[in-house]
Nucleic acid binder design. Structure first.
Lengths: 186, 186
DNA sequence: CGTCTATTTGAATGTACTCAAAAGCGGTGG
DNA sequence: CCACCGCTTTTGAGTACATTCAAATAGACG
């Protein structure tokens, strides 16, 4: 499981620590196009992507979908708002392809952080980066037009671009698929 | 200094730990309309707002300003991208009024986290919340029109709304001041 | 092969921007 | 304390960007 390699990039766990952590994690194989979380449910799990790719998206009252994030190998994904507050999720999460995911549930995460405070550092770095990433996305959204955002996305995330439909990318950029189509073919 | 109260909300520091931390922090009084960081400079400091309010904004090549965040009492602010990577800042930071700020510089933060690993937890929670906040802002940006975003902002951050100009709010929402004016007077 | 969804194309509409000018407001100096 | 200056806010006309709706085409998948 590459999650331990990923963790080892930031902190060093000794064998007994790793063993303890291992009791709290569960590797799951999930088919393509499977809903892991439905908008409105409490988000109970935090997923580490060992293989495959996923999408988190909100559906508004008019049925319009907005993609909040894509997750690829070595990313973590959940509805973090709903997970940390144990409240109803604002987004649904679906697999885009066959996935291998490491599940960490809310209670387990609390006890892991309690028993292995070293992991606070791991998650601190994780969230710090996630914060920076989202802030850059906000800047992009409010300062650039759709064309720039489109080209910047495919440049920054070429691997993601290959796995998603244009409709999904449009819903990530916050535009209609029709308009994105026009930009592309220009 | 209310920073210790703020920290105490999340973790318990014993007197010697607090004393150590105190050697790394520096309280500064800054006048109104002062630039703490200029876009392009390396961000050396992370600021905790003890009193007053601030604004972080990017200026693009055409001179258009985009406000990334406002910071009020008990918020932390810096260009986190530039701070954590020690790279040139994408934003400038200015005081909106007379401020009392607690400064933590990059090297100091590294040694504080090293010597007082308890603080990893404090910052983990801080960044986790910041991440969620930015993610909700992204969702708002891509799924709602300007009018909704405007009303949601003044409802969610009434205290911020009172301290900033409409032009600044427009640059936070990603619209022109002229258009925001129209929305308001409708 | 047929069905379902994604993508493209186009016309009409609506949303937000640009530019310009006038009015309002806050701070500063006399 | 008032008058002036500079910046913010308002208002309006014309333009550009992005959406909606509809229909045709292309692709994916069972």
């Amino acid at each position: 499981m590459s999650i331990y390699t990923n963790i080892a990039n930031h902190i060093a766990l000794n064998p007994s620590e790793r063993e303890y952590l291992d009791t709290k994690l569960r590797l799951k194989h999930i088919p393509k196009k499977t809903m892991l979380l439905e908008q409105g449910e409490v988000a109970k799990k935090f997923y580490y992507v060992d293989q495959g790719s996923l999408r988190a998206f909100n559906t508004n009252t008019k049925g319009k979908e907005s993609t909040i994030m894509f997750a690829m190998k070595d990313w973590w994904i959940t509805d973090m708002y709903a997970f940390m507050n144990q409240k109803p999720a604002l987004v649904s999460i679906e697999t885009l392809e066959k996935c291998a995911l490491v599940e960490l549930d809310f209670k387990a995460m609390e006890s892991v952080l309690d028993k292995l405070p070293k992991l606070e550092r791991y998650f601190r770095i994780l969230f710090q980066r996630a914060y920076v990433r989202e802030q850059l996305r906000v800047l992009d959204n409010i300062s650039s037009d759709v064309e720039q955002r489109y080209f910047r996305f495919i440049e920054k995330y070429p691997d993601v671009s290959r796995k998603i439909t244009q409709k999904q990318l449009a819903s990530y950029l916050g535009v209609t698929p029709e308009f994105l189509s026009q930009i592309k073919n220009k």
